[in-house]
Amino acid sequence: MTSTSTSPSTHPHGRTGSSEPLLSVRDLRVTFQRQGQEPFEAVQGVSFDVHPGQTVGLVGESGCGKSVTSLAIMGLLPARGNRVSGTVSYDGTDLLTLSDQQMRDKRGKDIAMVFQDPLSSLNPVIPIGLQVTEVLERHRGMSRKAATPVARDLLDRVGIPDPDRRLTDYPHQLSGGMRQRALIAIALACQPRLLIADEPTTALDVTIQAQILALLKELVQDTGTALVMITHDLGVVAGLCDEVNVLYGGRIVERGERHELFAQPRHPYTHGLLASIPRLDAPRGQRLTPIPGSVADNLPWTHACAFAPRCSQPIEVCTRVMPELVPHEGRPLRCHNPVEESR
């Protein structure tokens, strides 16, 4: 990797519409059932498509169900105490109907995941090199000996300096950014067609975040891997995702191509989020417009709009009827009273 690079002027645009979606999530619901407690529906009917080579963002604040969605897609939620329904079709196969064994074959090979905290997702007592070759041995049937140079190249590919030496290093010997790179190397080992990244840069400093985002962008461009980016950071989404889904209270409230969504956010929540973030390029002295209240004020979606108590422009129907996710000016939107002005 070169030290200085300019961000590409042409952004990899997803081939939306034309090709078959690689991943198609329909009406995904996840309910947590705990003894002695009311069941809690964390994800309440989420549907979206991901096409090959496309980067799709799932954005929302803590508790909006974005991470649970990704875990459900990967089949990583423990069966006990959780109920998952809906369909997650990957290349025509419904992942939710697969057995644990079949799912294990898919995970890591066809679909890979990068988590937020690399230190807790890497095994602390196994050298980095072995953690990469392990995947190659398991899914591609390579011998340890044959896998080692491949692992070395993978580490090199994700920009880890001195990869030969790093093969024998343990996770604690790497810095945070290097660990995240190692995790990406493991995820890429079998050239997955779908990569799910759950807050991959949240634990990192901005300059390191910039490196990792540039790496992900490059990978999508070079390999045509589809990327699902889960984040709370609208800035990350703005630069990386072709399509953005905004989640609130376990449901998608707005979806759109990034330029359209950021230029004309129609949902008061999206609009409010953008108005509440201090921007580096905003004129100083401008006051932020926060979204009042907190997620604790949410109404149940069943018979209202969950966001209504915090909304800047609620109307009477908002507290009575749940809005559906229906096209509004060509973009899916879940709102009774959309924001009309542009930002």
């Binding site: 300059t207 975040q209 703005a238 630069g239 950021f262 580096l280």
Partner: peptide
């Protein structure tokens, strides 16, 4: 390196990527 929540700015931004930690 600071991402700005605006795709137009993000697309034409010139980043100075630092190497290493």
């Amino acid at each position: 390196a600071v991402p700005v929540p605006d795709p137009v700015i993000e697309d034409r931004r010139e980043q100075i990527l630092l190497t290493g930690d």
